[in-house]
Design a protein around this nucleic acid. Structure first.
Length: 287
DNA sequence: AGTCAGGCAACGC
DNA sequence: GCGTTGCCTGAC
């Protein structure tokens, strides 16, 4: 050993990436600011694994701990080119072009499907700060504890842990009526009634979505969010109030519900979900 | 003090 | 199918 001091290694990637923008873009809620090896960065658990550390230098270079580049790259969506994604967008869409230019560094993360689904079940009618607080409480009470860089981190609780906790205990985590949905989902998955691994392997987006929507509290929007942010399904296009607003005001679309959904999926194409993320962030910041 | 959020399900028509 | 309403909670 040349020295006892830990060092960081580079995570290579192609195209644009902004760690800060990606963490703020409403898909990840548990990464904490962290000082490690002399670098200001962020740390958080990836699934049930021990915490990972990630930081980005001013020149764009992404650093993580030795042994972690592969899982960090996969988690933050750095294993594909942002240029290739954009090449599939409709060439004449000026609104989308503007949204991309507004924050080109946003990536779509690949969270473990369960924690992504669970987080979005608890997100309905909630602000980002509150979603973050709920996620933290659930992790602290029911998730596996890890120590890293002098701080404490918690993995997202397993379905079995939340099923065992019971609906009333979950309600005490400020979940309100979402406690029932979260508990039923955790129970169904823990019991094997709903197989998330099979849903991830399901080639048809519509079929995967339908399976998720069998869960109480999971409608089309949450199912699409889970598939987009938790399964790398970039064809999934979640429509929330912000996206509906942008489609109505900037795209002049008066359609609703299933018709609007169908129009968007067809217009934006195989990476519609990526387009959604650019538009969503743009809408939140400017509308 | 009331209203309202980054939805969903149940119900009525 | 389409529109309405209740639901927990915290922020304004």
């Amino acid at each position: 050993m040349a020295g006892s001091r830990a060092s960081l290694v580079v995570v290579p990637y192609e195209g644009d990436f902004s760690l800060r923008e990606t963490l703020k873009s409403g898909q990840l809620f548990h990464w904490q600011p962290c000082l490690f090896d002399g670098h200001e960065g962020y740390a958080g658990c990836i699934g049930s694994e021990s915490p990972a550390f990630i930081t980005q230098l001013d020149d764009g270079t992404v650093l993580t701990r030795p042994g972690d580049p592969a899982r960090v790259a996969r988690y933050f969506g750095l294993d594909h080119s942002s240029e290739a994604i954009r090449a599939s967008f409709p060439a004449t869409d000026e609104v989308l072009r503007t949204a991309i230019a507004f924050s080109p560094g946003i990536r779509i993360a690949r969270q473990p499907l369960w924690e992504c689904l669970a987080t979005f079940i608890t997100s309905s009618m909630k602000q980002v700060t509150h979603i973050r607080a709920i996620s933290l409480t659930l992790r602290q009470r029911y998730g596996e504890r890890h120590e890293f860089a002098g701080a404490t981190f918690h993995a997202y609780p397993t379905p079995a842990a939340l099923a065992a906790a019971g609906e009333e205990a979950l309600r005490q985590c400020a979940l309100g009526y979402r406690a029932k949905s979260l508990h039923l989902a955790a129970s169904a998955i823990a019991a094997g009634e709903v197989d998330l691994d099979a849903i991830e392997r399901e080639p048809s987006l519509a079929a995967a979505r339908a399976r998720l929507m069998e869960l109480h509290g999971v409608g089309e929007k949450i199912a699409n969010c889970a598939l987009l942010f938790g399964a790398g399904r970039w064809d999934a296009f979640p429509i929330d109030v912000w996206i509906e607003r942008i489609l109505r005001d900037l795209y002049r679309k008066r359609l609703k519900g299933a018709r609007l959904q169908a129009w968007a999926e067809r217009h934006f194409g195989p990476h519609a979900g990526y387009a959604q993320q650019y538009l969503f962030h743009f809408a939140r910041k400017t509308l």
